[in-house]
């Protein structure tokens, strides 16, 4: 099906874009369009005005700030996340995550800002952003605010961004700890049936000094598995009862249940995946 009619704007500066967001009727941002185009075709959205962020150079930059945090422009593509030297050096887990998204063609168009604003519960970036404790910078004519990823993603396809706000950059604290991202899908380009992102650091005496784990493909959106983290953190790696801790955490979750996998199957798979990922990280 074809999208409904809309007016199209292609601002060349961020200021111009923010002005449009404030003044035009029913504005809708288009970034890479890899989620939005299918939605427009299904007429799930029927915006009066489409604001294309594709011609704004400021949104395509990757920088390291004084605090050592990565600042990734919202319009940086998945391809650039994989290739960018600064990202590979300061948050290699993010580059690995981007490799799991869709296929080469999708990764050349789709953007990091677009994926996070779409807030698809099975998307690849969110669990990784949760363990990195990233934040999103939102801009509007009213001003600028920075929102933690856990507060930004409010639920499936629901974010904290207001209608007149544009996500301009993602702030990612430097993280060079051991990491592992894993996604299971029936075919590689599909969204995850189960997904896990984790980072860990073990001390020289074999105790688990730092551990952050998040899961995706859950009914209410991605989640940090804090009960599992606290059950393991500070413990010696040989003295933990991994199976019991994992079971307790996963049994309390509600994975998505659909044609790609029922709840029971997804819970079972998530347990297996977590056991493997954590073992690999702490060994």
């Amino acid at each position: 099906m074809y999208p409904t009619e809309f007016e199209y704007y292609r601002p060349k500066t961020l200021d111009e874009a923010l002005e449009l967001m404030k003044t035009v009727e029913e504005p809708k941002v288009i970034a890479g369009g890899q989620s939005l185009m299918p939605m427009l075709k299904l007429r799930f959205y029927e915006p009066a005005c489409l604001i294309d962020l594709g011609a704004i150079p400021e949104l395509k930059q990757v920088k390291l700030d004084e605090g050592g945090n990565l600042r990734i422009g919202a319009m940086v593509t998945h391809f650039e996340v994989i290739e960018n030297g600064l990202i590979r050096e300061n948050a290699p887990i993010l580059a690995s995550t981007a490799e799991n998204i869709g296929d080469i063609q999708i990764r050349n168009r789709g953007t990091i800002g677009g994926s996070i604003c779409e807030a698809d519960p099975s998307a690849d970036y969110p669990p990784t952003m949760f363990v990195l404790e990233a934040s999103i910078v939102l801009l509007s004519k009213e001003g600028r605010r920075t929102v933690r990823i856990e507060d930004f993603i409010k639920g499936p396809y629901e974010t904290d961004a207001r209608e007149d706000e544009i996500a301009v950059e993602i702030i990612v604290p430097k993280s060079t700890d051991q990491y592992h991202v894993e996604k299971y899908a029936r075919r590689k380009a599909d969204f995850a049936v189960v997904s896990v992102a984790a980072i860990a650091r073990t001390a020289s005496d074999g105790s688990i000094e730092e551990l952050r784990i998040a899961a995706g493909a859950l009914t209410d959106g991605p989640e940090r598995l804090k009960s599992l983290e606290s059950a393991l953190k500070g413990k010696k790696k040989d003295s933990v009862d991994l199976q019991t801790s994992i079971s307790e955490t996963v049994d309390a979750l509600t994975p998505i249940s659909d044609i790609h996998g029922g709840e029971e199957y997804r819970k079972y798979s998530l347990k297996m995946m977590l056991a493997r990922v954590i073992k690999e990280l702490i060994e």
């Binding site: 292609r10 369009g33 890899q34 185009m37 594709g54």
Partner: peptide, 14 residues
């Protein structure tokens, strides 16, 4: 770079 032209609007290719 390869992209899928059914997922892009013609006006975006200005």
């Amino acid at each position: 770079k390869p992209v899928k032209s059914c997922q892009i609007l013609a006006v975006q290719a200005q």
